[in-house]
């Protein structure tokens, strides 16, 4: 075993470099569908919040753009934030690094929309620089 001391930086690796010969398991997220962009980012975020956090009985449109998502507002917590990131990654084709998980981005749907737009722009820039 090669021992490490702290400060080691692993090589940057692509997220998926091998095709999975899998089965009935959940499939990788589809890239964002262009036809869906007519739906606002805000309403897509609300849909992701309800679906992926299993908020049964809550309709997406009941969530206000400025409503606090955590604490007193919708009552979400840190694990919800992590689960929500997975949902947003799948919905918007973005990849959020652990050190980019800015707490303030999760204040409301509006702040999340800003965060997602930033991430999408970054992903777009990364794709452009690759080609």
């Amino acid at each position: 075993m090669k021992l490490r001391t702290a400060r080691h930086k692993p090589d940057p690796r692509s997220m998926r470099t091998r095709t999975d010969d899998a089965h009935a398991a959940p499939q990788p997220p589809l890239p964002p569908d262009e036809t869906m962009t007519s739906e606002s980012i805000q309403s897509r975020i609300k849909r992701v919040i309800v679906d992926c956090l299993m908020l049964e009985g809550l309709a997406p449109e009941e969530i206000g753009d400025e409503q606090a998502l955590f604490g007193e507002g919708l009552g979400l917590d840190s694990v919800d934030a992590l689960e929500l990131v997975l949902g947003l990654e799948a919905e918007f084709g973005i990849k959020v690094k652990s050190d980019e998980m800015d707490r303030t981005a999760f204040n409301s749907v509006t702040s999340l929309a800003g965060f997602v737009e930033g991430q999408m722009a970054k992903a777009e820039a990364a794709r452009a620089s690759e080609t």
């Binding site: 997220m15 089965h23 398991a25 959940p26 499939q27 990788p28 997220p29 694990v79 997975l86």
Partner: peptide, 18 residues
């Protein structure tokens, strides 16, 4: 385990894990 083998380990759900 389905998520880990399917969409990959980075799609593992925190809800399921805890």
């Amino acid at each position: 385990l389905d998520q880990i083998a399917g969409a990959g380990p980075q799609s593992a759900s925190p809800f399921l894990f805890m």
